[in-house]
Simulated assay, not measured.
Amino acid sequence: MTDVLLAEDDEAIAGPLARALTREGYGCEIVTTGPDALERSKDTRFELLVLDLGLPEMDGLEVCRRVRAARPQLAVLMLTARTDEVDFVVGLDAGADDYVGKPFRLAELLARVRALLRRKQGVDLVLEAGDIHLDARGRRVLVGGKDATLANREFDLLRFLMERGGEVVSREEILTEVWGSADLRSSKTLDMHVSWLRRKIGDDQSGRKKRIVTVRGVGFRFDPD
């Protein structure tokens, strides 16, 4: 089980979020002050710190800086009610791996948690299907031994589909996991990215096995074999 430390002093946020994390299979402990967050984050059983920027006694930025010095590998997801881009940049500069602005949707935050833990834990660093080779750490894709130049979102989309190889994944799930929000489900964003990705991995070539299959009315499936 992956253990998460949730540093949030607003019970209206902490309670529902802790319950959602528990339902997802994570262990979750709540702390409500900056000093408590700093102290408990030293426990190496915690793999992720969900950190509110506005904690009492010591703000989240200072907590993050000190946590980074003590445990550089700990994943840190910052929560902030501030929406100014400068505040987000300051948070990332303090050592946060990602941030979510308040108010947030639970589905979006949980998707960010999963993505962040995948990156930190190095899950499925190398994925292969036929002549497609994806190196997650190097963010590199080879098709037939040649580099395929993928934009960041195309890479994330391919990785997600390959990780779920053989499974049908819904459009909403893809948008939540890769884009961080299902609000784009009525747009053509996903279809355009799938189309571009198919061209880059050779799915549009005659006589070549089609890897990304459209499941009408549901979503897509990546066929690894």
Rank of each mutant, 00 (worst) to 15 (best):
M1C: 02
T2Y: 09
L5C: 04
L6W: 12
E8F: 11
A14M: 12
G15C: 02
P16A: 02
L21T: 06
T22R: 15
T32E: 15
P35M: 07
D36V: 00
R40W: 12
S41C: 02
T44M: 12
L48C: 04
V50W: 10
L51M: 15
D52C: 03
G54Q: 12
G54N: 15
E57T: 10
E57N: 11
M58H: 08
M58A: 07
M58Y: 13
E62I: 08
C64E: 01
A70L: 13
R71G: 01
R71I: 01
P72F: 07
Q73W: 12
L74D: 07
A75W: 13
L77S: 10
L79S: 06
T80H: 05
V86H: 13
F88H: 14
V89W: 11
L92I: 15
A94I: 07
D97V: 04
D97N: 14
Y99Q: 03
Y99E: 05
G101E: 11
G101Q: 09
A107Y: 05
E108I: 01
E108W: 08
A115C: 07
A115R: 14
R119C: 00
V123K: 14
L127R: 08
A129C: 02
A129Y: 06
A129H: 04
D131W: 00
I132T: 08
H133F: 15
R137Q: 11
V141T: 11
V143E: 07
E154Y: 06
G165C: 01
E167H: 11
V168S: 09
V169A: 00
I174W: 00
E177I: 00
G180V: 04
G180I: 06
S181V: 00
A182Q: 10
A182D: 15
D183M: 09
S186F: 13
D191N: 12
D191W: 01
S195L: 11
K200M: 03
K200I: 03
G202R: 10
D203K: 00
S206F: 13
R208N: 08
R208G: 02
V218T: 14
G219N: 07
R221L: 03
D223R: 03
D223M: 04
P224H: 04
